[in-house]
Nucleic acid binder design. Structure first.
Length: 422
DNA sequence: TCTGGGGTCCTAGGACCC
DNA sequence: TCTGGGGTCCTAGGACCC
């Protein structure tokens, strides 16, 4: 039985979310920025047409923004997550065999859908999502995930496709592949694109026909899989229930550079507390906490360092993780540097249910668990950040805090549920 | 002056063992 | 100059994704 995948991809997702609640933005150039209003991470088609590239810093495009009255928004993650859930819920009505691939993309497995007209099916799906959520989507249909991504890419660009392209048994498949630059193939990043074009491989068709051993030497086993996927041999099955996470990271770039250890301690305490919250949400515990700091990566005198802290017993207790982060920071802190970013990484994750009781354990696990449950309940009910740890600090104008100066309203949530660290 | 955040996988090389 | 041959495990770094 030949496999069939559909990729459903929300167009310019963050921008589209803003437009749903602010229709006067339709037809105008719009961008959405990363944290601290740093880079453009989503652009409307009009903004792309002005030459605004993905992830370009705002300060480099100020002229374009001013001259063309580009509408600029800070990220509003609470809104985007909510809209994403709405889209995904609609897709599950079509088939339960769905993989949520990212906040704005999902794969559907349509292998056993009988003799239906797949293009027609894709159109129906597109129409329903747009009608019910206001978010425009593109649909690519093909025998492998890589080809489905490629079809989706073309569906967006082609007038004729009108947002839906089916490459299964298509007589145009070779032509389609030839029209896609190798850099736009899923799995080919900047480095590989440079290598491939330097070797005369400029488009997806040429990559498909390339010699596997040559590709393997440079790109490893994934390069070989990539070629097979382009040939229509499926190497990446649908991940129906994604495996549990192997790590959790919480990191932020600071609004302003920091030199004082006391301020860094507040920042990493906040990140550790946020990491602990994520763990509890996943019903998981971590065995290792790594804390890291760095200075401006674009300047000389760059400093980066990290320290790992092994917890005696795997844990998701906020105060324990905060303690580990602070210990780690004290090891790597050096005076007189202008710190721009810090973060914590939680590793060696396991299910909360498997925590072993230990005689050496200095923490009363039952008491800790009860306290964490209460804390999470209050913050869920009354808004994130209602209860915080003292280590995070109390001042309103902390220099490490992320800023969002052009954020839209919380249209879809009851409270102003926009945590400082989320 | 101003440059995001959160993940995964693979590979090479070193440590260590028999 | 010659100076075993494997295996396994771990880690750092590099590449990719959105």
């Amino acid at each position: 039985m030949a496999s069939v995948f559909a990729l459903v991809d929300c167009n310019n997702f963050y921008v589209s979310c803003e437009r749903v609640f602010n229709p006067r933005l339709i037809g105008k150039p719009v961008i959405v920025l990363s944290n601290n209003d740093g880079c453009a991470v989503a652009r409307s088609n009009e903004a792309k047409a002005l030459g605004i590239k993905m992830a370009v810093p705002l300060f480099q495009i100020e002229d374009i923004v001013r001259k063309n009255r580009v509408q600029v928004f800070s990220s509003n993650y609470a809104l985007y997550a909510d809209m994403s859930n709405r889209v995904m819920r609609i897709l599950t009505q079509f088939t339960p065999k769905m993989e949520v691939y990212s906040i704005d993309e999902a794969f559907l497995d349509l292998s056993d859908s009988g003799g239906i007209d797949l293009t027609e099916y894709g159109r129906k799906l597109k129409q329903r999502v747009e009608k019910w959520t206001g978010i425009p989507v593109s649909v690519g249909i093909a025998p492998t995930k890589t080809l489905a991504k490629l079809a989706g890419h073309l569906a967006k660009k082609s007038e004729k496709a009108a947002g839906v392209l089916n490459l299964c048994r298509s007589p145009y498949q070779e032509k389609a592949l030839a029209s896609v630059k190798v850099a736009d193939v899923w799995g080919v990043g900047r480095r590989y694109a440079k290598f491939l074009t330097a070797n005369g491989i400029d488009n997806a068709l040429q990559l498909r026909e390339a010699e596997a051993e040559f590709i393997r030497k440079k790109m490893g086993i994934n390069g070989v899989r990539l070629i097979n996927e382009l040939k229509g041999i499926s190497c990446y099955p649908l991940e129906n229930s994604p495996p549990s996470k192997k790590s959790i990271t919480v990191s932020r770039t600071f609004r302003q550079a920091i030199t004082a250890q006391s301020e860094l301690l507040e920042a990493v305490s906040a990140y550790a507390a946020a990491g602990a919250e994520k763990l509890r949400k996943d019903r998981a515990v971590a065995g290792v906490l790594t804390v890291y700091v760095l200075t401006n990566r674009f300047s000389d005198n760059y400093y980066y360092n990290s320290a790992a802290f092994n917890l005696p017993v795997r844990s998701s207790d906020s105060s324990e993780l905060i303690h580990a982060a602070r210990k780690g920071l004290e090891k790597i802190y050096r005076k007189d540097y202008q710190y721009k970013k810090a973060g914590i990484i939680l590793n060696d994750l396991g299910p909360e249910s498997l925590v072993q009781a230990s005689f050496l354990d200095s923490v009363d696990r039952r008491r800790s668990k009860k306290l964490m449950l209460t804390l999470d309940e209050i913050n869920r009910g009354m808004g994130a950040g209602t209860i915080k740890y003292g280590a995070v600090g109390l001042s309103r104008r902390q220099r490490w805090k992320t800023s969002f100066n052009q954020r839209s309203k919380a249209y879809t949530t009851r409270w102003e549920q926009l945590p400082e660290v989320s």
